[in-house]
C-alpha cells in the first residue's frame, strides 16, 4: 500500500517537473524570438520542412476524410430523410475539428519526430555545445525559429486541408450520391461562418507550436547516444499527439462554449 502511494507520489512529482521544465523551455524559446538576432535562414528551412514537405500527407488525409464524412453522414441522415444536411456536416466538421486535428497529428508524426531526431543527434554529438562556443545561442538558433515556423506553417496547411476536405465531400456527394452540384456548394457556403474557419486556424497555430515545442524539447534534452535519440523521437511524437488532443478539447471549450 505504501509502495503504491510512493509510486503515485513519484509519478506526480515527475509529471510536475516535466511540466515545469517544458514551460521554462517554451518560454525561453519564445523570449529569444523577441531579442535579436533572428535566424531567418533557419526559420525558412523549418517553414519549408513543416509546411511545404507536409503538403502531400496533409492533402491526402484531408481529401479522404472529406470523402468518408460525406459517405457516413449520408447513410446516417438518410434514415431521417435529412440528406440535405450532408454539406453542412462536412464543412463544419472539417473546418472546426478534423482539419486542424488530423493535420496536427500527421505533422506531429512527420515533423515532430524529425525535429527530435535532428536536435537529439546534435546534442549527443556535441554539436549543440559547439554552437555555444561559436558565439551562437542554441536556443535562439535551433529552437526559436522552429517554434515560430510551427505556429505559422500549420495554419497554412490547415487552409489547404479545409479546401481539400470540402472538395472530397463534394466529389462523393455529387458523383456518387447524386447531389446537385450547385445545391451542394450553396449549402456548404450558407452554413459556414467565418468563426468556424478562424477557430480552426487558431487551433492549428497552437498545435503547430506544440509539435515544434515537443520535438525541440525532447531532442534538446536527449542523452546517451543513438538509443537516447530514439527514445526522444518516440516521446516527442507521443507527447505532441496527446497534447494536441487535450488542447483541442480546451480550445473548443474556449471558442464555442457560451
Amino acid at each position: 500500500m505504501l509502495d503504491l502511494l510512493a509510486a503515485v507520489g513519484r509519478a506526480s512529482l515527475a509529471a510536475c517537473r516535466f511540466t515545469g521544465q517544458l514551460a521554462i523551455f517554451g518560454l525561453s524559446g519564445l523570449s529569444h524570438l523577441l531579442r535579436p538576432p533572428f535566424y531567418w535562414r533557419m526559420f525558412g528551412r523549418a517553414l519549408l520542412e513543416i509546411g511545404y514537405f507536409s503538403l502531400p500527407v496533409v492533402a491526402l488525409t484531408a481529401i479522404f476524410t472529406g470523402m468518408v464524412l460525406a459517405l457516413q453522414s449520408y447513410t446516417g441522415f438518410a434514415r431521417f430523410s435529412a440528406e440535405g444536411a450532408v454539406a453542412s456536416v462536412v464543412v463544419l466538421s472539417v473546418t472546426r475539428e478534423l482539419g486542424p486535428v488530423l493535420a496536427g497529428l500527421m505533422v506531429a508524426g512527420r515533423v515532430g519526430a524529425a525535429m527530435a531526431a535532428e536536435i537529439g543527434t546534435m546534442r549527443v554529438t556535441d554539436q549543440i555545445d559547439a554552437l555555444s562556443t561559436l558565439s551562437t545561442n542554441p536556443m535562439k538558433y535551433l529552437v526559436a525559429p522552429r517554434l515560430l515556423a510551427g505556429a505559422i506553417a500549420l495554419p497554412l496547411l490547415v487552409i489547404v486541408a479545409d479546401i481539400l476536405g470540402v472538395m472530397g465531400g463534394y466529389i462523393i456527394a455529387t458523383f456518387k450520391l447524386g447531389f446537385n452540384q450547385a445545391f451542394y456548394l450553396k449549402n456548404t457556403l450558407d452554413f459556414l461562418q467565418p468563426t468556424d474557419v478562424i477557430s480552426g486556424l487558431a487551433k492549428a497555430a497552437v498545435f503547430g507550436f506544440i509539435i515544434a515545442l515537443m520535438g525541440c524539447f525532447q531532442g534538446y534534452n536527449s542523452r546517451g547516444g543513438a538509443q537516447g535519440v530514439g527514445a526522444a523521437t518516440t516521446a516527442a511524437v507521443v507527447a505532441a499527439s496527446i497534447l494536441i488532443l487535450a488542447f483541442d478539447y480546451v480550445l473548443t471549450e474556449m471558442f464555442f462554449a457560451r
Partner: peptide
Amino acid sequence: ARARIGMLFQNGALFDS
C-alpha cells in the same frame, strides 16, 4: 569571456546539416 575561446571537440562535432 568564453566567446573568445576556440574549441576543437574530441569527436569533431561538425554541423552535419
